[in-house]
Amino acid sequence: MSHLDFLSPDLAADDAVWRSPLERALAHAPEGVEDLTRTAVFEVRGDVDGLEGEVVRLTPERAYVLCPFEEAGRVRMRLTGAGRVVVDASAGWAGLRVHGETLMHRLTDLDLNALPALGALAHVRALVIRDEGDSFRLYFAQEYGHSVAEAVIDAAEGLA
């Protein structure tokens, strides 16, 4: 193992059981709320121009790179080098897909027309990405995942 491999969940043995921190909270989630936690996220410092994958640039020299969990190894390898510091943050983030602007308005004060952005979501710092239409992806620290999922479900119930 290399010295930062212990951060990479995709390097676990096949019989190690991966569980989402949202699993229990989402057991009775309304339709349209989807668990995206099984996503690979890399925090990249240094030259972040022309990176492969979905790149969310935070500063000129700092970015998150997102990719499907199954592609984590390949993406990690391609990111490494060029004097960059690459830290696998996949295990640190939980993710949700939700639908609806009103629901989002009840969760965050971010301007939904100026995404992606980092900001407070259900009182927790989150990365919010808007996909087509009114579909949103929310990524936040996994240790707050249960709380955020509860808040999302509660807000969705308020609109039902």
Binding site: R19, P21, A122, H123, V124, A141, Q142, E143, Y144, G145, H146, S147, V148, E150, A151, D154
Partner: peptide, 8 residues
């Protein structure tokens, strides 16, 4: 809602 940190 009071955000709580929970371990895995």
């Amino acid at each position: 809602h009071e955000p709580a940190q929970r371990t895995a």
